[in-house]
Amino acid sequence: MTRYVAGRVIGAVPLVIGIATIVFFAVSLAPGEPGILYIAPGLTQEVIEQMRANFGLDEPVYVRYVKWLGAMLTGDFGYSFSHSRPVLDVLLEFLPNTLLLSGCALLVAFVFGTVIGTLQAVRQYSLRDSAASVVLLFFYSMPSFWLALMLVLMFSLFARNVWDWPFWLPASGMTSTDHDFLSFGGQVWDRVVHLILPVVSLALVLTAGIARYMRASMLEVIRQDYIRTARAKGLSERVVVFKHAMRNSMIPIITLLGLQIPVLFGGTVFIETIFAWPGMGRAIVDAIGTRDYPLIMGGSFFFATIVVLANLVADVLYAVVDPRIRYD
C-alpha cells in the first residue's frame, strides 16, 4: 500500500508540471496583457512598455517559462499583478475559504445523496421512489447559479421583506461586517448561517447525482445472496439495509466522489461570485480577465494538485472500504 501511494505521488509530479506548462503557454498566447486594464486615452505607449517591464513581461515567453518553472520548484510563485502581493499569500488566503465551502458541500451531498438513494432503492417503483426521482432530476438539470439566485431571493429577500419570516439568511459574504464584535458563540453561529445558502446551492446538484448512483448501486447489492441470507437470519430490515447493504453499495460512490472534485471546483466559481465568497475559483476567473498571469498559474497549479490528490485519496479509500481490492 505504502509503495503504491508513493508511486502514485511521484507519478503525480510530472502530471501537475505538465498541466501547469500547458496553462502557462495557453495564457501567454491569449491576446491582451495586464496593462490593457489601465487603457484610457492618456496612457502612452512608453508607459505601457514600462508597465510590461515592471510586470516582468518584456522577455520572450520561453525565457519567462524557464524562470517561472525554476522559481515555482523552489516554492516562489511570483507576485500577483492585480493584488500587488505574493501569489502564495493570495492563494493561502483564499484556499481555506474554498475548501470550507466545497468540503461542507461535499459532506452534505454525500450524506443526503447516499441516504436518499438508499431509501429510493429499498422501495423501488414506489411513489416515494418516483417522487424523489422527479425532484432529484429537477435539481440535477438546474444550473447551480440559477438555483443559487432563487435561494437568495427566497430565503433572504422574500423571507425578510415579503413573507416576514422570523428568520432569514444572509445573502452573501463569509461573515457579517460586525463579526469582530460578536461573542465567540455568536461568531460561530454567524459563520454557520453564512455557509447555509452557498453550501446548499453547491450541494443540491451534487446530491442529486450521488443519489442516482447510490440508488443504482443499492439495487444491485440488495438482490445479492448474502442480503437474502441476512434477512433469513431474521435481522431487522433496518440492519439489513443500513449495515449490510449500504456499506457495499457505497464502493462506487467513493470513486464518484474523487471524480466529482473537479466538477465541484468548477461549481465554486459561480457560487463564490454570487455569494461574494472570497475563494480561489472566483479569484482565478478574475485573474484570467485581468491577465494576472502569476495568479492564474499559481491557482491552476493548486487546483491541479488538489484534483490529482483527491483522485489518489479516492483510490486509496476504495481499498479501505473494499477489502477485496489490494494495491500491491
Binding site: L149, V152, L153, S156, L157, R160, N161, W168, P170, A171, S172, G173, S176, T177, T273, I274, F275, A276, R282
Partner: peptide, 14 residues
C-alpha cells in the same frame, strides 16, 4: 461581485 446579490443586500439592509 454579483449585481442581484448586491441589490438583495441593499434591500435586506445588510
Amino acid at each position: 461581485p454579483d449585481q442581484t446579490t448586491l441589490l438583495t443586500e441593499l434591500l435586506t439592509e445588510n
